[in-house]
Design a protein around this nucleic acid. Sequence first.
DNA 1: GTCTATAGTGCGATAGAC
DNA 2: GTCTATCGCACTATAGAC
Lengths: 196, 196
Amino acid sequence: MSPARAAAASSPGPVEVSAAQGRIIAAALDLFARHGVGGTSLQMIADEIGVTKAAVYHQYSTKDAIILAAAEAELSRLEAVIDAAEAERAPRLARDALLSGIVALAVARRRTVATILSDPVIGAFFAEDDRFRRVMHRLRRMLVGDEVGPEARVRTAMLIAAISGAVTHPFVAGLDDEALRAQLLRLGRRFLGLPA
Amino acid sequence: MSPARAAAASSPGPVEVSAAQGRIIAAALDLFARHGVGGTSLQMIADEIGVTKAAVYHQYSTKDAIILAAAEAELSRLEAVIDAAEAERAPRLARDALLSGIVALAVARRRTVATILSDPVIGAFFAEDDRFRRVMHRLRRMLVGDEVGPEARVRTAMLIAAISGAVTHPFVAGLDDEALRAQLLRLGRRFLGLPA
DNA sequence: GTCTATAGTGCGATAGAC
DNA sequence: GTCTATCGCACTATAGAC
């Protein structure tokens, strides 16, 4: 099987969603962040949108399908940031564009990003998802280049965890988005050894 | 029981637990890490220990009480690390001891630490828990001193998120505890501007 | 695309025996 | 400290009307 074919089999690029599906995904992400994936029922999602459970089932035939759709929707946002960064010619510029993009994404979606990356149920889905693995691989490659040792692994894991985890931390609850974004970018650059 | 009520009822100081209660807490922490708090039922906890639900209820009369006991047990480990670090005379030594202790704790309890700090259900309990707030305050004070600006807040949040989040990241799944600990400590020191 | 109605399962929680 | 047995409820999921 060709790479293109394998990719199409596991997850076909940008996933199209109807308006009704978009409402379900948005409601699900919000509720996942507030109650966890396991603590969110289809009834809660239906109530949030203002329809019945059966209407939700008409769009996604299982709860797992909703979890997957919500996780992939959030993953797509990260993919778009990576795509934009890779369009930069110089590796140095690409890396800085990636960092800026990740920080902006994490701040703009404070409540959802951390949930997607830390919820054990979504983690189980992503652990076997080729698309997720490809995204993480591209991320690491752009951040630390071709290094593969323990130092590079830990450094990348710490940077991603620091950005995604810090935005929901109680310490920064009172900060407005712009102040948070600026500090995250500055400290992230310093962590990577980039010019501030 | 609402989180607010449970937090108000929580006692300061070390909480004594019987052998049976200890088994429940250990099983609960393990299951919370694997399925999330909302995705863990009392039946799952009972099965893990090898008793019935009623036996679990005899120790903790609600599921919330189990969640609270498990979260506080993990919080106590962090408190012990802070206590030990504060015993150091020089602030510089205290800060380095704290960092080493946090890193060692996060690595030793890879699976549970991230869950406790990131699960939204536990977050709701901690948000109104004075003991948790005191621990976080002591943590920040030792790490960044008396600074209170956005930079100090974001820096502390990033460090805690980086350490607790990195230990469960897929990038470091293949690393043994000692290698992970050494790298986390080195990069953590560098992030704080301490001598390596 | 949304509804009502319902099946079958597992949930948190309780009562009372040993 | 653990058991059996049970209650009432919420859950995922399905069938069929509009």
